[in-house]
Each structure stands twice: as structure tokens, then as C-alpha cells.
Amino acid sequence: MDEMRRFRRAAGAWAAHGGDDGPAAEAARELAVTAGVRKVVLVEGESDLVAVEALARRRGRSLDEEGVAVLPLGGAMSIGRFLAVCGPDGLDVTVAGLCDAGEEHYFRSVLERTGPRPHLTHADMEQLGFYVCVADLEDELIRGLGADTVQEVLDVEGDLRSFRTFQKQPAQRERGVERQLRRFMGTHSGRKAQYARSLVERLDLDQVPRPLDRLLAHV
């Protein structure tokens, strides 16, 4: 396991302990030094991690070599614990983040409580390096590529027949194809991460979804 992956696991363990000092904190601090961590990007889940790193590679960047660690929260409600880990009493590193529209209030409330000022606007959050996907990253990628291109990707991945069957389900028939695609990607464990990588690989680099584009520019 490489140093950055070990750091991710250690930071997650530290956050799970509430950001308090102890063996988990000591291990994460040591690994942060070993891995050369200078910045942390907080994302909700593994698919977001995959997408951020895949886009960075397409742009000729190695986030690991730059000392940028992308940490999945395992759910937006963990944002407070991870900010404690990364903040002045923790690793004391620069922090940025990416979240879904439905989870923005969790991010905002913690940033208002721990940041430089209360009552943050959407623009204020972006100035702090936190960007919001509408409605989530899968939705951003589907809209960015278009439904036809996304279905071509499904075909390449061997999932198009399964998607056609999925479209015939009663709960899906009245939904538009974009919503069907988004829902389909969440039906099996690991599928979101699989398609996060595949869809990013198909993006026109001049038409990257705004939150993802701005996040990488920020870090």
C-alpha cells in the first residue's frame, strides 16, 4: 500500500475517533509527513475520489506527488470530524472540498462554525475552496457528456443490456433518461466509482463540470 493510501486510512481512523489526540492521531501525523501532505480535499465518497484523481491525471497532474490528499468522508455528516483532523489543532493543512447539493447544508454549517465568518453564501464557500455539485457528481458528469455518450460508455463497460432492462422497471418508465442513468449507477456497490472513472475519461477537457473543474484549479 502506498504512503498516500496509508495516510488516507490513518486520517479516516483519526476522524472516527472524533479528531482527538491518541494513537490514531499520532499515526496520521507521521504518515502525513512521510507522504508529504500539504493540502487535503474532502469528498463524500469513493466515486468522488476516483473522479478527482482521474481528472487530475488527464490534466497531467499527480496529486500524490503534489502532496494533495483526497479523503472520502464516508458521508457528509462526517465533515466536522475531518475538518478537526485537518485544522489548526490537527494536521494544520489547507483544506478544500466537494459535496452534493443535498448535503451542502452540512458543509456550510460546519464551515460557518469553524471558519472565518458566519452566514456563508454559495460564493463564500467557493472562495474557501468548497464546491457543490448539482445534484451530485454523477448528475454533473451525465449532463456534461450527454445521455447518448453516457450510454456509449455503458455499452463499452458491458452494462447497456442491463440498463435497458432497468429502464423497463415500473419505477423508471416515467423518468427521463438522464435520471435513469443516474439511478442505474447507484444500483450496485462499486458502480458509481467504476463510472466516475469511465465518464471522466470521456470528458472533453474544455467542458469539465464546473465544480470539479474549479476544485482542481483551486488545489
Rank of each mutant, 00 (worst) to 15 (best):
G60I: 02
G60Q: 06
S62H: 00
E66A: 02
E66D: 09
G67T: 01
G67S: 03
V68Q: 05
A69S: 06
V70N: 00
L71Q: 06
L71Y: 00
P72C: 05
L73C: 10
L73E: 05
L73F: 12
G75F: 09
I79P: 02
F82V: 03
A84V: 10
A84Y: 04
A84P: 04
A84K: 14
A84H: 07
A84W: 06
V85L: 12
P88C: 07
D89I: 02
L91F: 03
L91V: 01
D92K: 08
T94H: 08
L98Q: 04
C99S: 09
C99W: 08
D100A: 05
A101V: 11
E103P: 06
E103I: 09
E104M: 14
E104W: 14
H105S: 15
F107G: 01
F107V: 15
F107C: 06
V110A: 12
L111W: 08
R113P: 01
T114C: 11
G115F: 13
P116K: 15
P118I: 12
H119P: 09
L120P: 10
T121A: 12
T121V: 10
H122E: 13
H122Y: 15
H122K: 15
A123V: 13
A123P: 11
M125T: 09
M125P: 14
M125R: 13
Q127E: 15
L128Q: 04
V132G: 04
V132E: 05
A135M: 11
A135I: 07
E138C: 08
L141E: 01
L141S: 03
L141C: 02
I142D: 05
I142C: 06
R143S: 09
R143W: 12
R143T: 07
L145H: 01
L145W: 04
D148I: 03
Q151V: 11
Q151L: 15
Q151T: 14
E152R: 15
L154I: 02
L154N: 02
L154Q: 03
D155M: 11
V156M: 00
G158I: 00
L160C: 08
R164H: 13
R164F: 09
T165W: 15
F166N: 10
Q167G: 08
K168N: 14
A171P: 03
Q172R: 15
R173K: 13
R173D: 01
E174M: 07
E174K: 11
G176K: 09
V177M: 12
V177T: 11
V177Q: 12
E178I: 11
R182Y: 04
F184Y: 12
F184W: 04
M185I: 07
M185V: 09
G186Q: 03
G186F: 06
H188V: 14
K192Y: 08
K192A: 11
A193R: 06
A193Q: 06
Q194N: 05
Q194H: 05
Q194R: 13
Y195W: 01
A196F: 04
R197S: 10
V200M: 02
E201M: 02
R202S: 10
R202M: 13
D204I: 02
D206Y: 01
